[in-house]
Amino acid sequence: MNRRLILILVAALVVAVPLSLLAGRVWIDPIAPTTRNAALILFELRLPRAALALVIGAGLGVSGAAMQGYLRNPLADPGLFGIAPGAALGAVLSFWAGYAASVWLLPVFALVGAGGAMALLALIAGREGGVALFTMAGLMIASLAGALTSLAISLSPTPFAMSEIVTWLMGALADRSWREVGIAAPLTLIGVGVLLSAGRGLDALTLGEVAARSLGLEPRRLQARMIVGVGLAVGAAVAVAGVIGFVGLMVPHLVRPLTDRRPSSLMVPSALAGALLLLVADCLCRVLPLSGGELRLGIALSLLGAPFFLKLLLDMRRGLA
């Protein structure tokens, strides 16, 4: 069942990636390209953008699947860990530090922010490795980072910087280059690898913490894997694309009924489906006719995600989820 799902998703990606390269403000005819600079648009604009969508979508998808498995809650989202808000705070501070000085400043600041959130999380929750304390610590870090971000915005040196920050926070893949791919891809890859290695522990957690320990789970080791894995995948995503919410929530939830529902069998399909979702959503954002530029990806996904979340809650209330 799982193998077939993975094959279908891979096939969908194989179809979607080339199509996504052709779509955009300028449509490119694949057979007889009449567009000027077609090669330039393809290789310098659209290909890195598609690669970034795949990398970030896969990272967010796996992070969401792992988070839900770890917290044993289908409503969990990587944002709950406080890592995305931590990364966003770092990025916002880079605007203060004069981010224009170097193209590396923003992603590096964001990664430092994500790392700080990870360290704080490990420090508060790491001792005993319990899930409840971990969740509370994550929520605390998320709200603290959110408040500090708001503070930084409200005190921003110039109105121009403020609008720049706010726009960046909304998350997008527009105007990204191979440099961003170079930052995000290796970090995400390591993060995804770490999370995949946590699969067995997450399976054991299906039976609750006590039974999981009796099956040989070492809670602190699993927690460390979660922090490092989600930290790298989500931190890298925020560092290059801003905050893109709801992917980590929606994707595992959509994929779960198609698997045997074990957390470990959810991970690879969630990576593929996350990549597909982000690629398609980014394509639609690019194509949608909108005066004053294109729809920002982060906003589009939030618009899609909020009603999805609501439906999930209603389903759960009816005991269907």
Partner: peptide
């Protein structure tokens, strides 16, 4: 080990 009031988090 079978804990008291065992939990099954996912509908497997």
């Amino acid at each position: 080990y079978l804990p008291q009031s065992p939990e099954i988090a996912w509908d497997v």
